[in-house]
Simulated assay, not measured.
Amino acid sequence: MKIISYSIFIILLDQVSKFLVLTTLGFERSKNIIPNLLNFSLVKNKGAAFSLFSNATNLLTITSILATLLLISIILKSPPKSYWNSIGLAYLLGGTVGNGIDRLLKGYVLDFLELVPINFPIFNLADVSINIAIICFIIDLTKDKSRIKH
């Protein structure tokens, strides 16, 4: 249950951040947060990562729902075997649900984090959570391999 609780915290953080940026900034403006590094620029992303599958909103919504159900099933039926795996699952579930809520309720995902010095797609906290999950899973796999060698 700790994993699901942590995921709920991530979902709330994601949804509150999107709501605050939408209500204070809106779609018309961009706000510099950290000079030469970070802007808040709210955009509607109708696709997946890097705006892939932009015309497949229904498919992406169904995929989000199925991924959420699968992750909850994995968490409840087979508890994670390690710290890094459980943290990864919490972040993955939180990020998946955060963007899934947007797709389900709005038909698009709200992205607002813009890295100024590089030409990188605008993203959100749910996207950050999914990437943290991937890092946790890599750490988990690497730690398992180092145990086998010794």
Rank of each mutant, 00 (worst) to 15 (best):
K31E: 07
L37Q: 05
F50M: 14
A56I: 05
L69V: 05
L20M: 15
S51C: 04
D140M: 00
A133T: 02
L22A: 14
S129F: 08
L141V: 03
K44H: 10
A49V: 06
G107Q: 05
T61N: 03
L38E: 00
L115M: 09
I122F: 12
N32T: 14
F123I: 00
N39H: 15
I75N: 10
L115N: 01
F50H: 11
L52W: 10
G107N: 07
L70I: 14
L66E: 01
G100L: 13
N58W: 04
N55P: 07
F9I: 15
S78Q: 13
L105C: 13
I72A: 11
A90D: 13
I33Q: 02
V109P: 00
S129M: 06
D127K: 11
N119Q: 14
A133R: 00
D14G: 02
L12H: 08
S54C: 03
I65M: 09
L110G: 00
I62P: 00
I75R: 09
R103P: 01
K31P: 04
N85S: 11
L66W: 03
L113N: 01
L76E: 05
T24N: 14
G98V: 09
C136A: 05
T142P: 03
N55E: 15
G94R: 00
T63H: 04
S30T: 15
I130H: 02
L59R: 00
N45P: 06
S54W: 04
